[in-house]
Nucleic acid binder design. Structure first.
Length: 268
DNA sequence: ATGACGGATTCTATCCGA
């Protein structure tokens, strides 16, 4: 089963690029981020015509996540638990019903910029950086519950985290950014250290592998990228991992997203 | 260099992203 994550930066603007990629890559499941659409405005037909079931968790203008699946989806849940009235649509999960049940979670982790830190080094309450770190703590709690279930499950999406220096072409340019700050990377490690396998690094080592290139300043042509889209696997899912790739080349096509898909193949 | 580029809504301006 081929499962992909793709931050498409606006579903309505990406119909052609997304359907072209779907026809070539033929993923069984796609976790989409930044659909930038309300549920009723999501263009379902191009995907249903290709045999995908569609589940969305959208909001007006920004954010929004969705699942496309050729297999049936059950027990769809929207939003992280204990979200305390979080209005931002950043989490959707469901069970893919195949020969073996697989729990899949799609996430769009907050960017967190600008970084606001007080004199004691604490994130300023109400700021975007504090929101990012609080969201990551809620994610950690959900990740711990998933781990405790001891079943095949994955959490994939735009984590807005550069895990290591090798995951940025110019790490020094990101040193004080919310994507690379020590607090952000530590929060990411607290999740991975619950026992998750970061699929890409389980398969491929070394620098030069990116999933995002800014639209500005010719970042793609200079390969000035960062790797911020990740797939985390429970041990029971990691046992099934046979491949993980980043489809970087589609960044050079017409009207691309600024992110590219990352996908895993699971022997299920 | 509080810039650029691109998508969306508030739409010939502004907000947001990374």
């Amino acid at each position: 089963m081929k499962i992909a994550s793709f931050n498409i930066n606006g579903i309505k603007a990406r119909i052609q690029a997304l359907t072209d990629w779907l026809d070539e890559a033929a993923p069984d499941v796609v976790l989409l981020q930044e659909i930038k659409s309300v549920d009723d405005g999501f263009p379902r037909e191009p995907f249903e015509d290709r045999g995908y079931n569609v589940e969305t968790h959208g909001q007006k203008g920004f954010n929004g996540v969705a699942i496309l699946s050729k297999l049936p989806l059950e027990d769809v849940r929207r939003g992280l638990p204990c979200d305390d009235g979080d209005e931002q649509a950043r989490w959707i999960e469901a069970t893919v019903v195949g020969q073996r049940a697989l729990r899949i979670c799609g996430l769009y982790l907050p960017n967190g910029n600008p970084v606001e830190i007080d004199d004691a080094g604490q994130p300023v309450a109400g700021g975007k950086y504090a929101y990012k770190l609080a969201w990551m703590e809620r994610l950690r709690q959900r990740a711990a519950d998933l781990m405790a279930a001891e079943e095949p499950a994955l959490m994939a999406g735009d984590y807005n985290i550069i895990p290591q220096e090798e995951d940025a072409a110019r790490p020094d340019a990101w040193r004080d950014d919310a994507l690379f700050r020590p607090e952000s990377r530590a929060a990411f490690r607290r999740i991975v250290n619950l026992g998750y396998t970061e699929a890409f690094r389980a398969r491929i080592q070394g620098p030069g592998h990116y999933s995002f290139w800014d639209y500005q300043a010719g970042a793609w042509n200079r390969n000035d990228g960062i790797r911020i889209d990740h797939v985390l696997l429970t041990p029971q899912a990691a046992d099934l991992l046979t491949d993980c790739r980043i489809d970087a080349e589609i960044r050079g096509r017409e009207k691309p997203s600024d992110h590219v898909p990352v996908w895993v193949e699971l022997d299920v």
